[in-house]
Amino acid sequence: MENVLSILFCLSLFYVIVTSRVKAYVTVLQIQGVLLSVLLIIQVIHNFSVYGIILPITLLLVKVILIPRYINKVISELEIKRRIEPTIQQMILLPIVIVTMITIFIVSSILSKNTAMDVIPFASGFSSIVVGIYIIMFRKKLIVHVCGFLILENGIFLFGTAVASELPMLIELGVLLDVFVVVFLMGITLNRISSTFKGFEVSHLGRLKD
């Protein structure tokens, strides 16, 4: 079951690479949030505890409702145009991503011979981290960068479940809170940037140079 969810997670990455609409990024973030929550709920069902249900619920709340809503609000407030304006066309980035993913999957299956781990969630998580970085590198709009950062964070989360690291509840919640506040601050900053620079693309940020 975990493998199925991870594969679905990978498919959402392909969608995010080929789409050219900003709103689609937010949808993908929601889908990934749901997948991660389901993954956690499955783990809780295996050894049930009332205490353990807090984390999936908070995850659902933060990653599926709060953050996407907030980003949508920022998008509509700033009247950001719907297209993402890539620096590299989607059809060039797609093969790059496919090659990267294949490499990651092969390397992880080789590595898994020495260390016990779930190969598919591990590789999917790592792919998501790399795709997040690609999005930050090859897209012009700053709001898309924020989405890229969140995809990277989701990847790390999946990666964490794959290596079966059981961080204490308090810390997991702290991590979620931190991510939420980061996105919140980034939203406020974007608001300022759009009113100061009359735009929200990387090209506007070129004042600080040596």
Binding site: I129, I133, I136, L142, H145, F149, L152, E153, I156, F159, G160, V163, S165, V175, V182, L185, M186, T189, R192, I193, T196, L205, R207, L208
Partner: peptide, 23 residues
């Protein structure tokens, strides 16, 4: 403003990397 954005974004991504290291 630009400095704040760059710091916030770069360091957040950097710290995310540190989290991978912890995992």
């Amino acid at each position: 403003l630009e400095a704040m954005w760059k710091y916030l974004f770069l360091v957040s991504v950097g710290i995310a990397f540190a989290f991978i290291g912890i995992l």
